[in-house]
Amino acid sequence: MKAIVHDLYGSADGLELRDIDRPVPRDSEVLVQVRAAGVDPSILHLMTGKPYMARLAFGFRKPKNPVRGWDLAGVVETVGAKVTGFKPGDEVFGSGDGSLAEYACARADKLAPKPGNLTFEQAAALPVSGVTAHQGLSGRARPRPGQKVLVIGASGGIGTYAVQLAASYGAEVTAVCGPGKADFVRTLGATDVLDYTTQEITDGGHRFDVILDTAGNRPLSLLRRALAPKGVLVMAGGEGGGDWVGGLGRQLHGYALSPFLGQTLSSLIALVRHKDLMILKKLAEDGTIAPVVDRAYPLTEAVAAIKHLETGHPRGKIVVTV
Rank of each mutant, 00 (worst) to 15 (best):
T214V: 12
G178S: 12
A215G: 12
V163R: 13
V173E: 11
G153Q: 04
H206Q: 15
A182M: 08
S168A: 14
P219Y: 11
V163M: 06
E172M: 14
R140I: 11
G170C: 03
D183H: 09
L222D: 03
G205T: 07
R225K: 15
G170K: 00
G159R: 07
A226N: 01
P219V: 07
G204A: 06
R225C: 01
G139R: 01
R224D: 02
T198P: 05
T202Q: 08
P179R: 12
A190S: 07
S221A: 15
G170A: 06
R144C: 00
V176M: 07
P179I: 02
G204N: 13
I211L: 14
A190K: 08
V163L: 04
P143S: 04
G157T: 04
A190E: 08
R140F: 06
G156K: 07
D213M: 11
Q164T: 01
C177K: 04
L194D: 02
P219N: 14
Q164R: 00
I201K: 03
S138C: 02
D203I: 05
K148W: 09
G189R: 03
I211M: 12
G178C: 13
G205E: 02
V149S: 03
A228V: 02
P143K: 00
A190I: 08
Y161P: 07
R207M: 09
A171E: 03
Y169W: 13
A190Y: 04
G216Y: 05
I152W: 11
R142N: 13
L227M: 04
V210T: 13
S221Q: 13
D213A: 10
S138W: 07
D183C: 10
V210G: 07
R207D: 11
G146T: 00
Q147A: 00
A171V: 05
R140V: 15
F208G: 03
D209A: 12
L165N: 04
G170Y: 10
V176H: 00
L223W: 00
V163T: 10
A190N: 11
S138K: 10
A226Y: 00
Q199K: 12
D213P: 12
H206F: 10
T214S: 15
D203K: 04
P179N: 02
D192A: 15
Y196I: 09
A175S: 11
L220A: 04
Q199H: 11
P229I: 09
A162R: 08
K230L: 14
P219E: 13
L223A: 12
V151E: 10
R225D: 04
G156W: 04
V151Y: 05
